[in-house]
Simulated assay, not measured.
Amino acid sequence: MRGGMNNMQGMMKQMQKMQKKMEEEQAKLKEEKIEGTAGGGMVTVVVSGHKEVLDVIVKEEVVDPDDIEMLQDLIVAATNEALNKADELSSERLGKHTKGLNIPGMM
């Protein structure tokens, strides 16, 4: 019984250590700025690692009052690219702390 308790305590310490590292990575991710572009750089959307839109940059030459739909499509495409990159970065950063652990509900 004693060996089981030591094993459980060791596992709890490991979990606490992993949780602290993941919290640190989450804080770092919030500070990250990730860009998505569309239209060959005509539209750029910048998001944080927490997937908050920080900036939308539209080059003047892409603004055509007769084709607002194209501009809207470019903004959507750039936003989706930035959000996908943010997801990849988050998975990469947080996933390295859970690799090798076989915990239900964890990546």
Rank of each mutant, 00 (worst) to 15 (best):
H50Q: 09
H50N: 10
K51V: 05
E52I: 06
E52F: 15
E52V: 11
E52A: 14
E52Y: 13
E52D: 15
V53D: 13
V53L: 12
L54N: 13
L54W: 08
D55M: 09
D55I: 05
V56Y: 06
V56R: 13
V56K: 09
V56F: 06
I57F: 11
V58I: 15
V58P: 02
E60G: 12
E60M: 10
E61H: 13
E61A: 13
E61K: 13
E61F: 09
V62A: 14
V63W: 07
V63M: 11
V63L: 10
D64G: 06
D64I: 05
D64C: 07
P65T: 09
P65I: 09
P65K: 12
D66H: 06
D66L: 12
D66I: 05
D66R: 10
D67A: 08
D67W: 03
I68F: 12
I68L: 13
I68Q: 15
E69H: 07
E69V: 04
E69M: 08
M70L: 09
M70F: 00
L71C: 06
L71Q: 02
Q72L: 10
Q72P: 09
D73A: 03
L74Q: 00
L74Y: 01
L74E: 01
L74R: 00
I75A: 07
I75Q: 09
I75V: 14
V76W: 05
V76I: 11
V76T: 08
V76D: 06
V76G: 03
V76R: 09
A77H: 02
A77Q: 00
A77T: 04
A77I: 00
A78S: 04
A78Y: 00
A78T: 00
A78Q: 00
A78F: 01
A78E: 00
T79F: 02
T79C: 11
T79Y: 03
T79N: 03
N80F: 02
N80Q: 11
E81T: 05
A82W: 00
A82V: 01
A82N: 00
A82E: 01
A82G: 02
A82T: 01
L83Y: 00
